[in-house]
């Protein structure tokens, strides 16, 4: 029964989700949604691991999935704390307004 599912197609699904997540990171201005899009990408990577694990009939793929899950949880915790801090400071979580540091306004004119 399992044999019916083509491996390539499931891997393509993972790649597609990965790509959509990337689009999300690039077009979202809301920091929270940006982070959410990164989660989509990580989830896609986890899915790819599970496909690979199933292909080789090894548990390693799922183990890696669990590790990715753990990492995502820890990262979201720190990230959301940071976003809260940002909101406290700037009253906005717009990524485009977060450009205090750059090379353009600090343009180096003198020698």
């Amino acid at each position: 029964m399992m044999e019916q599912i083509p491996v390539e197609q499931s891997l393509l699904l993972a790649a597609l989700l990965f790509g959509i997540g990337l689009v999300g990171v690039l077009i979202r201005k809301n920091m929270i949604l940006m982070m959410m899009s990164v989660e989509i990408m990580l989830n896609a990577a986890g899915m790819a691991f599970i496909i690979a694990g199933s292909r080789w009939a090894q548990p390693d793929g799922q183990v890696m999935f669990i590790f990715i899950l753990t990492m995502a949880a820890a990262e979201v915790a720190v990230g959301l704390a940071l976003i809260l801090k940002l909101f406290h400071l700037q009253k906005s979580i717009d990524a485009d307004e977060m450009t205090q540091m750059n090379d353009i306004t600090e343009a180096s004119e003198s020698n």
Binding site: L22, V25, L26, I27, R28, K29, M34, A95, D96, M98, T99, Q100, M101, N102, D103, I104, A107
Partner: peptide
């Protein structure tokens, strides 16, 4: 090249992509 370091996060992410 200095203009590329504009501090915009989305721009940086696009650069990485």
């Amino acid at each position: 090249t200095r203009r590329s370091q504009n501090g915009n996060l989305r721009w940086y992410a696009a650069g990485i992509a």
